[in-house]
Write a protein that binds this DNA or RNA. Structure first.
Length: 554
RNA sequence: GCGCCUGUAGCUCAGCUGGAUAGAGCAACGGACUUCUAAUCCGUGGGUCGAGAGUUCGAAUCCCUCCAGGCGCACCA
């Protein structure tokens, strides 16, 4: 709809330019938006005011010139008004709105999808937690934001992959193996001495016990340098399996788990560093190798190969991002905890040094979550093994409520997650508000069937019967959906979907309480059934994108 | 000290990339179930958009300076 109006506007502008009344303008500068206030019609454009200074005419005069030259062949416009400072307000004929409902029926599950992404390949990397412990609540938010961002991009026509980067090559992995070894020795009656950096959670004991059961005390007398890698590998694999299972229960899946350690195969990281050195982005300083990230605005250069010859995490990450590009992805989206924001300039520098445009990498920062119970903070520390795991949360509050709650705020806004509120099946919990709307519509359809109605098709209804103000509003909201998805995709803001859902569900609940869908009037009943059917499709499609179920009964 | 994020109703937050009279939920108060699901709806009150200056037809939104909170500033990941 918006595009059709834009065409009319463009046409009018061209004519005005040809008539010598207005200076030439690029079509991109035309803005057209939904009018918030019904008094302003359906759509409004500020084009006249934008052109005012350039055309040296007053905005109302320009608006008049444009309005006079709009050729509405299809007859979709009821009127075009010029309002206060120079807005052009477009009012559509009422049945134009209802005519758009045909799209909803035709597209069904696909309604809301579009092709603005044009098949561009996008890789969304998220979670990427080290396999040194189970996922906790802090990872949960990033998991949902990443997952839903990917879904939204896919709906907007991008070719999307989800990927999890396993940091399984650092010093911490060694600590993990040692930690398990200590527990193992402890189980065999030896004194265990934990120091800073060791992992102490119960899951470490469980893993130690598994090894003990499998191998007995065979590892007790062997050299630590030999044993630790064995323990590390075993623990990492075991923990990663647990992580995958946690994510599965949370409704998150990945196309690929990419292991950091595989970057080191065939000296991959070292080769890449050498390549960057040849390109002049890397230099040696005695025994240390530096990346000139300052060339791209970072505040200082960064080490890529340490004095001890071991590449830094950053070096591997450059190689990883390079690998992503080599696999054909045009845009890389990384979801990071907000505490990593200082890392952005160097990663951005790396992308540019590799020869890709700056905006080929987009980072979504996700603020940390304050976990509360009854308004009181729940203390957490991974190292000490005190944390609420993702799985505990999912088991306690349910997948739907957990996912929805993480999408109720902008990513870069702090989020309080209160377990007691998320658990409540009440109006304090918006997820049920939306699901209830869906269940209600399903219920209407059940009753309709019992009363002998058949499910109406678009061609069989009289759209002119949908003329109540709240019906027009609902139709507008339903037809706005594809634009909402595109907006969320372009801004990388999945939370827009939850706000949209709340609007739609609210309008529906209100409509439901005020009007009967099923009545003695068959034609009206059919028209309304069709309308709520469209609403159900949009609710379901949106909930699907969020990874939240759309129950038929509650 | 430097950088990033945040500051909007009593509380938790939106505000569509600069638009028209700043919105929603919760909390408070008052109403609506012999009716397609009351996990719902209707109504009432509630604001110096942290402060100050600036840019322009127009600012919660953009620039600058402060104030407050959070987070960063490694040859850790």
């Amino acid at each position: 709809m918006k595009n059709r109006l834009l065409k009319l506007l463009e046409g009018s502008l061209r004519t005005a330019v040809a008539d010598g009344l207005l200076p030439p303008t690029e079509p991109q500068s035309i803005e057209l938006e939904f009018a918030r206030d019904p008094k302003h019609g359906d759509y409004a454009s500020n084009i006249a005011m934008v052109l005012a200074s350039k055309a040296r005419k007053n905005p109302r005069e320009i608006a008049g010139i444009i309005a006079d030259r709009i050729i509405d062949d299809d007859g979709i416009l009821q009127k075009v008004e010029i309002a206060a400072p120079g807005f052009l307000n477009f009012s559509l004929r009422k049945n134009v709105w209802a005519s758009l409902l045909g799209d909803v029926e035709r597209l069904g599950d696909a309604y809301g999808t579009s092709n603005v992404g044009a098949g561009k390949k996008v890789l969304v990397e998220f979670v990427s937690a080290n396999p040194t412990g189970p996922l906790h609540i802090g990872h949960a938010r990033g998991a949902v934001v990443g997952d839903v961002t990917a879904s939204v991009l896919k709906a907007a026509g991008y070719d999307v992959s989800r990927e999890y980067y396993i940091n399984d090559a650092g010093n911490q992995m060694n600590n993990l193996g040692k930690s398990v070894l200590l527990r193992y020795r402890e189980l065999l009656g030896q004194e265990a001495e934990f120091v800073e950096g060791h992992y102490r959670g119960d899951y470490i004991k469980d893993i130690a016990r598994e090894i003990l059961e499998r191998d007995g005390n065979a590892h007790l007398e062997r050299d630590e340098a030999q044993v630790v890698p064995l323990f590390t590998d075993y623990a990492a694999a075991s923990i990663l399996d647990g992580i995958k299972e946690d994510l599965r229960l949370f409704g998150v899946s990945f196309e690929r788990y990419f292991s950091e350690s595989q970057l080191y195969e065939n000296n991959g990281v070292a080769k890449l560093v050498r390549k960057l050195e040849d390109a002049g982005f890397v230099y040696q300083d005695g025994t240390t190798t530096w990346f000139k990230t300052t060339l791209f605005g970072d505040e200082k250069d960064r080490v890529v190969i340490r004095q001890n010859g071991i590449p830094t995490y950053f070096a591997a990450d450059i190689a990883y991002h390079n690998d992503k590009f080599l696999r054909g992805f045009d845009t890389l989206i990384d979801i990071w905890g907000a505490d990593h924001h200082g890392y952005i300039p160097r990663m951005s520098a790396a992308v540019q040094a590799l020869g890709y445009p700056k905006d080929a990498l987009k980072v979504i920062l996700v603020q940390l979550v304050n976990l509360l119970r009854d308004g009181k903070p729940v203390a957490m520390s991974t190292r000490a093994g005190e944390f609420v795991t993702l799985r505990e949360v999912v088991e306690e509050v349910g997948r739907d409520a957990a996912r929805y709650n993480f999408l109720m705020r902008r990513s870069d806004s702090h989020l309080d997650f209160d377990l007691e509120i998320a658990k409540k099946q009440s109006n304090e919990n918006p997820v049920y508000y939306v699901q209830y709307a869906h269940a209600r519509i399903c219920s209407i359809f059940n009753t309709a069937g019992e009363r002998g109605f058949t499910i109406p098709a678009y061609k069989d209804i009289d759209t002119n019967l949908l003329k109540l103000p709240e019906e027009i509003e609902l139709i507008k909201t339903v037809t706005r959906f594809p634009e909402v998805v595109v907006g969320a995709a372009e801004a990388l803001e999945p939370h827009r979907l939850t706000f949209y859902l709340n609007d739609l569900a609210g309008e529906f609940h209100s409509y439901y309480n005020k009007n009967k869908v099923l009545s003695d009037d068959p034609a009206l009943s059919n028209a309304r059934l069709f309308l709520v059917g469209c609403i159900r499709i949009v609710l379901k499609n949106t909930l699907n994108m969020l990874g939240v179920s759309a129950p038929e009964k509650m």
